[in-house]
Design a protein around this nucleic acid. Structure first.
Lengths: 133, 133
DNA sequence: CGTCCGACTTACGTTAACGTCAATCTCATG
DNA sequence: CATGAGATTGACGTTAACGTAAGTCGGACG
């Protein structure tokens, strides 16, 4: 288990995605499975990238934005200028994520308040109903 | 300023959206501007809802999900069962948001680590370059 | 050897969330 | 009254992120 290489089927079950999705990500150059004849074989690196892709998606990032982030995580062999640019993009993205988290925290507070209020309303409605019986 | 009612143009400038977007949200029953002849006039309530819509969008919620959340914020005249259901949906959504925030916090940490590493790489590449001159 | 299963490629279909364009309508202004 | 700036209503176009169907191909099995 947890072999070095995984087939498309194994990947699908492990990460709950469809084959189509994996092929799509490959076409978009987000994943780079190696080939054994026709078949794809996904490496550890592909799995790491896929995890990041799925996480990014949960935050509403587009695949293109995610691809830029992935570059940072695998930026070993780049040129200085290119790497610097990638770094800057990532910094912006980081600031983005932080402000997003803060806003999310705020939204959570708001919703909690609203839920408290909702509880009250529901409770009082139940009372009325009882009284009417 | 901050009058009770706002025209579509004022809304667009205030919230940085297009007229098309506002009409679209109305068609989807997310907003309910009143009419003065042909023209739409947006109330304070519409503005509050629009803020929540835009916030929801930033978190990657779909308009349909957002509509359900909005129901909670304006759930004055609903039936008990309907209200209870709305309440439950909102609770789920809340849990959703909280786990999302936690994951986001984690991702921010990861990215920070990666950026630190990136700085090092860039720094060392600059050194090499200097040495080569 | 036939065939059946899973993976592959190609290509067209689909949904959400608007953009864009054309054809009115309306109202203030010269 | 003509006209020009905005607002409105269809209606069709667009992009992202896959879904789905059709046809192919290579290997495993009886």
């Amino acid at each position: 288990m947890t072999e070095e290489l995984m087939t498309i089927r194994e990947m699908c079950e492990a990460y709950d995605v469809t084959p189509r999705t994996l092929r799509f990500y490959e076409a978009k150059e987000l994943l780079f499975p190696i080939r054994e004849g026709q078949k794809r074989l996904f490496t550890k690196r592909d799995r790491a990238r896929l995890k990041l892709i799925l996480r990014g998606k949960r935050f509403g990032f587009s695949l293109e934005e995610i691809r830029q982030l992935l570059d940072l995580y695998h930026a070993g062999d780049q040129q200085l200028t290119q790497l610097t640019r990638t770094y800057e993009i990532a910094c912006e993205r980081l600031a983005d994520m932080e402000s997003r988290r803060d806003e999310l925290t705020q939204a959570i507070e708001d919703l909690k308040e609203q839920l408290k209020w909702g509880e009250q309303v529901i409770a009082s409605m139940k009372k009325e109903k009882k009284a009417a019986e």
